[in-house]
Amino acid sequence: MPSPIISVSDVRKSYGRGQNRFDALRGVSFDIAEGESVAIIGKSGSGKSTLMHTLALLDAPTSGTIALEGVDTRTLTGGRLNRTRNRTFGFVFQQFFLTANASVLENVILPMKIAGVGRAERKRRGMAALEQLDLADKAKNKAVNLSGGQKQRAVIARALVNNPRIIFADEPTGNLDSNTGAIVEDILFGLNRENGITLIIVTHDEDLAARCDRRLVIRDGVLVEDSRPNDPDASTTSAPHGRHGSPEVAA
């Protein structure tokens, strides 16, 4: 069996000290295989967003380990940590985080600027991502002038330009009407199935979670359920490899 793309072992995360200490995660352990679609679900304050932030290396656990393709992420610091996040992960957030008065293309190519990709290649890959999301005709528009659904598609295009192995989506349809949300869901799951991108979605939406291969339920910082709603008798799910090649953690 191939090594999991993410392996989580007894991860704990606490904030504050003494009487003010709050344990957001209390000993969470699981593996995620490459190509899985995984929903992390739980009520507000359950620890699901904290878990996503630690998985995405945006925050460090207080104790325990997170391995990215066999590499202990505690060994990733400084520039190596930043490069790993930039090259390995794509992010889709509910709040969009677009620069309002910059063009759609300028927003989409930002991760490549951070990665040091040349101008011509940035434009080529940025336009290709916009084409894939049916937004090429909006490339020169200011982001502020997009509809909610167009903004979320621009965010997905931005997540794709560095060819990520994993996409983290935090309530990706939370600010969208049901029809537009369904379109965005279809795009994300299409990328998962057709390109082999591992999809990790944080949500409280049971219908969205049911579309995933697997659901992890967090309650009071504890993993209380790890199930596969679409294949309840299976203990493992084979992961597609798509366009992604051998494991790589940025050096």
Results as ranks from 00 to 15, higher is better:
Ala39Asn: 07
Ser44Met: 12
Leu55Asp: 07
Leu51Pro: 13
Ala39Gln: 06
Gly27Ser: 02
Gly35Leu: 00
Gly42Arg: 08
Ser29Ile: 01
Gly27Leu: 00
Ser44Val: 10
Asp31Leu: 00
Gly42Ile: 03
Ala56Phe: 06
Ile41Trp: 08
Leu25Met: 05
Ser29Lys: 04
Asp31Asn: 01
Leu58Ser: 12
Met52Arg: 08
Arg17Gln: 15
Gly47Glu: 13
Thr62Pro: 08
Ser37Cys: 10
Leu57Lys: 14
Leu58Ala: 09
Ala56Lys: 07
Gly27Ile: 02
Leu51Thr: 15
Glu34Thr: 10
Ala60Trp: 13
Ser49His: 11
Ala56Met: 09
Pro61Arg: 05
Ser46Trp: 04
Lys43Ser: 13
Arg21Phe: 05
Ser49Glu: 15
Thr50Asp: 05
Arg26Asn: 10
Lys48Gly: 10
Ser44His: 10
Asn20Glu: 15
Leu57Cys: 14
Glu36Leu: 12
Asp23Ala: 11
Lys48Arg: 12
Gly47Asp: 11
Leu25Glu: 02
Leu25Pro: 01
Ile41Met: 13
Gly47Ala: 09
Gly47Ile: 07
Glu36Tyr: 08
Ala39Val: 07
Ile41Phe: 08
Ala24Thr: 01
Ala24Gln: 06
Pro61Lys: 02
Thr50Pro: 08
Ser46Glu: 06
Glu34Cys: 02
Glu34Tyr: 01
Leu55Ala: 09
Met52Pro: 09
Ser44Asn: 10
His53Met: 10
Gly47Ser: 12
Leu25Ser: 01
Gly45Thr: 06
Ser29Thr: 01
Gly27Phe: 00
Gly45Phe: 05
Ile32Asp: 03
Leu25His: 07
Ser49Val: 10
Ile40Val: 15
Ser29Glu: 04
Ala33Cys: 13
Val28Asn: 02
Gly45His: 05
Val28Gly: 00
Ser37Gly: 10
Arg26Ala: 08
Lys43Gln: 14
Gly35Phe: 00
Ser46Thr: 06
Ile32Glu: 06
Val28Leu: 01
Ala33Trp: 02
Ala56Arg: 04
Thr50Met: 09
Gly45Met: 03
Lys48Glu: 05
Asn20Val: 11
Glu34Lys: 08
Gly35Trp: 00
Phe22Ser: 15
Leu51Ser: 12
Arg17Ile: 09
Thr54Leu: 14
Asp31Gln: 02
Ala24Pro: 04
Ala60Ile: 11
Leu57Thr: 14
Asp23Lys: 03
